[in-house]
Simulated assay, not measured.
Amino acid sequence: FQSYETSATAVYSVLVMLAMHPEIQDRVFEEVRSVFPDEVSSVGYDDMKKFPYLDMVIAETLRLAPPIPCIGRQTLNETELRPGVRIPKEMQVVIPIYELHRRKEIWGPEADRFNPDNFLPENIAKRHPCAYMAFSKGPRNCIGFRYAEFTLRVLLITLLRSLKFSTTFKYHDIVFMPKVTLGYEVEPLLSIEVRA
């Protein structure tokens, strides 16, 4: 259930972001069309490396709308985060991924803006590796994250090659509702057009 729910939420969120940002959707479409000029008959593992901009769009969407907005962990040992700040052994810790992904000191003054360039290699290199953790980090990360990444790509490549998405809903009107997975207070409706 968890895999299905988070994957479905992630695909929907990417489509919402692309519908709200048609210039970015056009760029993704051109990338997909360059690999699949006629139609998508099958997507192989080697094909996955041919979509760097789509990968940036997915990562940026998961930054702004992580399917799991927070995670909990328990410390195994007493841990010193920095001088004077200690976490006792066996303490429950909540990591607010949604808030972490929007911190201006990490993501810049426009941290709330949808900007796939946040995931250009040179921008990734400037950030701490744990600044982005859509699938958690470390030995307790999401067991199905590789499956989720592959599924997202295949679905989006297939959908975006033949369909165009639009919406009248505005990005600044999105209100997220944290539940078990991140949801929308009002789900933006999408219009779908078949590409010629």
Rank of each mutant, 00 (worst) to 15 (best):
S191T: 10
H172G: 00
A111L: 05
S41G: 02
P52Q: 10
T79R: 00
T151F: 15
R86A: 00
F169S: 09
R146I: 09
V194F: 05
C142L: 06
M91Y: 10
V154C: 12
V40E: 03
Q74M: 12
L156Y: 07
F135T: 05
R63L: 04
K104W: 09
P22D: 12
V93S: 08
Y4H: 12
S136I: 02
A134D: 04
E110L: 07
S41Y: 08
I95W: 05
K89H: 03
K49C: 01
L76H: 04
L120Q: 06
P129D: 04
V186R: 13
V175Y: 00
V32K: 08
Y132V: 05
A19Y: 07
A125R: 13
P121E: 11
S191R: 11
E149S: 14
S191F: 04
A131L: 06
E23A: 13
L155A: 15
C130V: 08
D112N: 15
P22G: 12
Q74C: 08
P88I: 03
V180Q: 11
D55L: 01
E30C: 07
F114N: 07
L156T: 05
Y53H: 14
P67F: 06
G44A: 08
M177L: 13
R103G: 02
F165V: 02
F145N: 15
H21C: 04
K50P: 01
I174Q: 09
L156A: 11
L155N: 15
S3E: 14
V175W: 03
P37Y: 06
L160Y: 09
G72F: 15
P67E: 10
Y4D: 02
A134T: 02
Y45N: 09
D46M: 13
R33P: 00
K164V: 01
L64W: 11
G72H: 12
D26Q: 13
D112R: 11
I97K: 06
F29D: 03
R161P: 01
H172F: 01
I124E: 15
A196I: 01
F36M: 03
K179I: 05
P69A: 13
C70I: 02
V194D: 05
I192P: 02
Q74W: 00
